[in-house]
Each structure stands twice: as structure tokens, then as C-alpha cells.
Design a protein around this nucleic acid. Structure first.
Length: 474
RNA sequence: GGUGGAGUGGCCGAGAGGCGAGGCAGCGGCCUGCAAAGCCGUAUACGUGGGUUCGAAUCCCAUCUCCACCUCCA
């Protein structure tokens, strides 16, 4: 079976066929950096990170471009309100987004272009659209002429006459109320640093044009996959596609959209103010657990977030890390090269090939871990080794290999100096408790265990002596 | 009004005509000095009403409820 992906444009799963054998170009709409990231933003990033990892695992070389929209109405407005330069405001949140992505193990993209860094490309594509008769200038702004382009609405099946008018600019300047701004003339109350010279006078890019310009610059006239959150389908992606195709470019072959994180059924969003900030969540939970929680639901299904979501994910993560730690101790650690080369169970491959069926893939991982734990109890080291390799290889595809550098060291077993110091202290307690137990002095033994537990250290007795680990957060 | 999506056991979530995915929580058991971890077992589940079929959570018809996009939004 080969990879099949759901294409928003055709509303069906399509067999993935790259333009160039062995290579995949992906353009992913990144954040508008005007406020702090919430877990919904991370869901989209994690979904496409899993896509990238699966493509890479199955032999593709992936070029993923994720833009940063560092100028828009809200950025200017919010920065002004805060009395900060708009570019400083944008950079502050760009850094927050980068930190959040890194925290949950999202691979850095091949390119991370900013809108304001691509004004020449934006001007070029606008000029091309004017020459083509698909755009027109009006009072220093330039608008896309939706009526001039037959394909308008094809991505999301919208009929122009049924839509509410676009409200990004004064309707009176437009030929059709659905026309949208490619270039916005500078307004008197906007800072001069937020405008650039153009053939139509000083101004700044409209919201959609930057993606067309940057996708063209980094991925060419046509590329394989364009991704983003569900809310971007219309108008953003519809407009992007219209601009690029009207300019004569083939643009994206396949469109993928990730679904919401909801709370009590309602979408989490900046404007609703019900967003759970990444920084808040990570204060109380491990980043890997957050990643697991976000990845565990199919990317096209709503993810219902509640107080128990992270607790459950933490429990599952504990199962994975616990098994990997115990199995590695028993049969020896597996190299990352071996993990990368390991054969994956057929059921796992089938699940991932079926439009990234992570929930089914996770079920295979759980079954593997259970079998591995049973083998550990039975003393079947060959089976333990096989389960360990298989489980780590599958978890690696999801970006959740507990032994990978980004997660190793979160728990006990770290080579970090503080952990070594702690280990030496805890060992003294473990020895004292062992002595008490040998003397059948259960009261003393339990008191030691309780005291360590209060400090967040979990003691587990095993056949070959007691082991300690840090309790899971949350 | 237009477009798209969803209703599955206490909870989260797969599946999409026929052996009840998986996880979390719960309950029973094994193991343990007691625990923890682990293992084994454990469920009148598929919004409602009809219909098709030997058989439907899965197909058809009707109906209710919820959500999203069409304004910034992952």
C-alpha cells in the first residue's frame, strides 16, 4: 500500500504522487505573530511534523517551508496599543512560537520566510497579475479581480454570489465586493516603517499575497502539498490559489487542513480568548505528553481538550518511557541508526499510509509495548529486544521516541550533573531502605519510600533491587 | 442564506455491513511484606424514528442536536 492523503480540494483521499521522484515540497501556513501561541497552534504544527516524519521515513526528501506572517492589521494595532514598534512586537511572538514548536519536538522547517522579507517577490507577482488583467489599482491599493478568474471558489466550492463580501478594505474602491487587497496603500495613522515603496505608492502587502510569493520563491511554480489549519481554507487558501493560478502558476497539487482543538465543543481561538497558552500548559505538564495529546487524535478530527486530556497523555507517555527504560536496561540500548532502519509492523504502516492514521498507529504501539512488558516478565529477552526496537521505531515516526535527544533527560537516567547528584543522594536512601526491608522493618522502609514520594521520587522494587524515577508531572 | 464537518461505552477516541481498535478511569485477579510498575480478565457503546439485508454503528429515507468557514484566526 502506498500513502494516501485526503485532499481538501477534491474532498477525497488521493494516492500521493510526488512531482519529482523521492522529493516532496510542502508549504505550510505558519503563525501570524501577533499574540502568544496556544495549544491549537501546536496541533497544526505537530500534524504536519508527523506528515514530514512519515514522508522521510518512507524515503522522501522533504522540503517544508513554513512562513511567518509578521505584518498585518492586528499586529500594527496591537503594537500601537502597547506602545511598541510593530516589528519588535512581531519578533517577540515569533520567538515564542519558535520556542513552543521546539518544545514539542517539531522539526525546524527548511525555510521560515517572513512576509516583510519578501516585498520584491510580492511586488513582482502583483505586477504580473495587473499585466494579466486579474488585478487593478485603485487609490494606491491593488485588488484582485475575482470575477476575472474562473477558478475562483474551486478549492472550497464557494459560489461568488452566495458569499458575504470581503471586508478587508472599503467596498467603494472595489469593482466587486469580493475582491480582496493584494497591496494596501499606507494609511496616515500607520507607521512609516510599516510601508514600502511600490509602483502604486507606499503601502504594505495584503494578507494572502505573501504566501503566493513565498511559495513561489522557495518551492517554484508548482509544488506537492499546501497545508494549514481548517480556518485558512476560506478565504486565505482560496485567495492564495486564485492569485497564484491567475499569475500562471500551477501552485499546490494537494491541500491538507488540520482540525481544531475544541473545549466543550467550541473552537479554541485567539479572538474568543479561550485559548490555552502553551506556556501555561507546559508549566504543569511534560512537553512530550502535550505532543502525544495533540498527535493522538486524527488530524482531521476535532480534538476535545479537557482537564483530563494531558493527564491521560501523561499516563500513556509514562507507559512508553517506562517500557523503553526497562527494556533497554534488560537487553541494552538500541542505537538511533538501528531505530531508523528498523522494520515497522505492517499494521502500523497501513495506518500511517491511510491519511496518517495516527490513532490506529498508536494502537499498534500499545500492543507492542504490552507484548514487550509481558516478555520482560517472562524473561524472553529476544522478544523484549524485538519489541523495544519496534516500539521505538514507531514512536520515532510520531516524534515521540523516548530515547531521542529531545526527550531523553526529561526523566531519571539523564547524564546531567544535577541528576547524578540526586542519584547519589537517593541511592543512600534506597540502601537504607533495603537494609530495613532485609530486617523486615516495614515501618522504616515505608517511611523512607513515603518521604521520597513526597519529594516527587517514585521507588519501584524489582527483582534486582529498587529503582527510582521522577514522578510524572501534572 | 451559501459551504463543510460531527453525534460511538464513565471519559478520550478508532472503525465503516458479519469475530466489540486502543488508551484513561473503574472493578476482579496474579505478582509484592505492603505498594508502585507490569500482566490477565472485565462493558446492555454506536443521537432519534423508519427501511433494505440472513445480518447495520456501518447502506437508504426522514428527523433532532452540535460545530466550523463565508470578518482576524491553526
Amino acid at each position: 500500500m502506498t500513502l494516501r492523503l485526503f485532499d481538501t480540494a477534491t474532498r477525497e483521499e488521493r494516492e500521493f504522487a510526488p512531482m519529482n521522484p523521492g522529493k516532496v515540497g510542502i508549504y505550510l501556513c505558519g503563525p501570524t505573530v501577533q499574540s502568544s501561541p496556544h495549544v491549537g497552534h501546536l496541533r497544526s504544527a505537530v500534524a504536519f511534523d508527523v506528515l514530514q516524519r512519515w514522508l522521510e521515513r518512507t524515503g522522501y526528501r522533504v522540503t517544508l517551508v513554513r512562513n511567518v506572517t509578521d505584518i498585518d492589521d492586528k499586529t500594527l494595532w496591537k503594537a500601537a496599543e502597547a506602545g511598541v514598534e510593530w516589528w519588535a512586537w512581531a519578533l517577540r511572538f515569533e520567538r515564542e512560537f519558535q520556542a513552543a514548536y521546539a518544545a514539542v519536538g517539531v522539526k525546524p522547517p527548511a525555510a521560515e520566510p517572513r512576509a516583510t522579507g519578501h516585498i520584491p517577490e510580492i511586488l513582482a507577482i502583483i505586477a504580473r497579475l495587473i499585466d494579466n488583467g486579474h488585478a487593478y489599482e485603485q487609490a494606491g491599493s491593488v485588488y484582485f479581480d475575482v470575477r476575472s478568474f474562473d477558478g475562483y471558489g474551486s478549492l472550497t466550492r464557494q459560489a461568488l454570489d452566495d458569499l458575504s463580501p470581503a471586508q478587508d478594505s472599503p467596498v467603494e474602491d472595489k469593482r466587486d465586493p469580493h475582491d480582496f487587497a493584494l497591496w494596501k496603500a499606507r494609511k496616515d495613522d500607520e507607521p512609516e516603517t510599516a510601508s514600502w515603496d511600490s509602483p502604486w505608492g507606499p503601502g504594505r502587502p495584503g494578507w494572502h499575497i505573501e504566501c503566493s510569493a513565498m511559495a513561489h520563491r522557495y518551492l517554484g511554480e508548482e509544488f506537492d502539498i499546501h497545508g494549514g489549519g481548517l480556518d485558512l481554507r476560506f478565504p486565505h487558501h482560496e485567495n492564495e490559489q486564485a492569485q497564484s493560478r491567475a499569475a500562471g502558476y500551477g501552485f499546490a497539487h494537494l491541500w491538507m487542513h488540520s482540525a481544531w482543538v475544541t473545549q466543550s465543543g467550541a473552537k479554541m481561538s485567539k479572538s474568543l480568548g479561550n485559548g490555552l497558552l502553551v506556556s501555561e500548559v507546559l508549566e504543569a505538564h511534560e512537553p512530550a505528553a502535550l505532543r502525544l495529546a495533540l498527535a493522538a487524535v486524527h488530524y482531521r478530527s476535532m480534538l476535545e481538550y479537557s482537564a483530563s486530556t494531558l493527564d491521560e497523555a501523561t499516563a500513556q507517555w509514562g507507559r512508553f518511557t517506562g517500557f523503553v527504560a526497562r527494556a533497554s536496561e534488560r537487553v541494552g540500548a538500541v542505537s538511533s541508526a538501528a531505530v531508523a532502519a528498523a522494520e515497522l509492523p505492517e499494521a502500523f504502516v497501513d495506518a500511517m499510509d491511510d491519511d496518517l492514521g495516527v490513532p490506529r498507529a498508536l494502537a499498534v504501539i500499545h500492543e507492542t509495548v504490552r507484548a514487550g512488558n509481558a516478555a520482560l516478565t517472562a524473561g524472553d529477552d529476544a522478544a523484549v529486544a524485538a519489541a523495544l526496537l519496534s516500539a521505538r521505531a514507531m514512536l520515532d515516526v510520531l516524534g515521540l521516541d523516548p530515547a531521542a535527544p529531545e526527550w531523553a533527560g526529561e526523566r531519571a537516567g539523564s547524564s546531567d550533573a544535577a541528576m547524578r547528584a540526586l542519584d547519589s543522594l537517593v541511592r543512600a536512601d534506597i540502601d537504607a531502605r533495603a537494609a530495613a526491608r532485609a530486617a523486615r522493618d516495614w515501618g522504616t522502609a515505608d517511611a523512607i519510600r513515603d518521604r521520597l514520594a513526597d519529594a516527587g521520587i517514585v521507588i519501584a522494587d524489582a527483582a534486582d533491587g529498587a529503582k527510582w524515577s521522577l514522578a510524572a508531572e501534572g
